[in-house]
Design a protein around this nucleic acid. Structure first.
Lengths: 156, 156
DNA sequence: TGCCGTATCGGGAATAATTATCAATAAAAT
DNA sequence: ATTTTATTGATAATTATTCCCGATACGGCA
């Protein structure tokens, strides 16, 4: 495998991103840096590197394939709010494979493709802030309620 | 939702098949029976029925989407030999969802897309027959070995 | 039963994502 | 330095799916 400007740019850019980009997202990022790189070159190199285990090709739900510069074993989730893909790096996740394989011994399980659905850290943050705000409003309402009740009582 | 010849043919054919066909596989099967049905009609109806929960759309690895006439909750596996999709109907599988969700409480997990990889019943059968045959051949070889050894001993 | 408004159809064009082709160029080997 | 081979960019082709639209079928109602 020869070393080329294009291939090295693709790999280093992919490794900088934590967004699991599609081929055309990478293209958009790379074009200013490697002027006349072509989309075909990006597809070709991503495919090659995935086949050699340098990177990972993610075949997930949705129509476009995504790529991950981190080839080490880990799982992914898709955020149900913003639709972004993010890594799951929980200590017990390496047990999941074994557990799932053991559930069906007769299958001779040789792995699972698994995509979780949940909230990414950012959207989780947002949701919590929203809940805090609501809680405050309720508190305010309750205070106002007390005031107006006392107004009734005192006739003011 | 009106009832039409095409929609009923699509649904009944899909329910007869246990192969989780793609839209064009269904098209091939339906064309002789519903002469000038169009591929667009098949896509449109599969999409509609999946949205209404009558059938299931499987967004798995591989580029084409597949459809399942059985909308009840169950998991799927892809055979690593013949690449076919088949159902997994194990009693403990209904616990898998809960288990996976409970592994990452902070994710707020709302489901997982899961595709197993293993051997389908047919390929499993084949593999076992192959192994039995090999075992027999080894047995034969051992017999021959014994014969030739005794030949050496007796000088014949 | 016939009429009408709406849902659905067929067929073809359009789109999206990816893969293939190939002459030109760059990298490695000699 | 020259030859060989791998890789590139540009474009065409392919694959899977969706969209469009005039024609047709369906279901409700007189």
């Amino acid at each position: 495998m020869n070393k080329t400007v294009q291939r090295e740019a693709i790999l280093s850019e992919l490794r900088k991103m934590n967004t699991h980009p599609t081929a055309d997202e990478l293209y958009a990022v790379l074009r200013p840096k490697v002027p006349q790189i072509s989309l075909g070159t990006i597809y070709r190199n991503l495919e090659d590197m995935a086949n050699r285990g340098v990177i990972r090709k993610l075949e997930l739900t949705g129509r476009q394939k995504r790529f991950d510069g981190d080839a080490s074993p880990h799982y992914h989730a898709r955020c149900r709010e913003c639709d972004r893909i993010f890594n799951l790096a929980a200590p017990r996740l390496d047990e999941v494979d074994k557990l799932l394989a053991s559930l069906m011994p007769e299958l001779g399980c040789s792995g699972v493709y698994l995509e979780w659905s949940g909230l990414c850290p950012a959207c989780r943050e947002k949701e919590q802030q929203l809940q805090n705000q609501k809680a405050k409003e309720v508190e305010q309402d309750e205070k106002r309620e007390v005031v107006s009740l006392s107004a009734v009582r005192t006739g003011r």
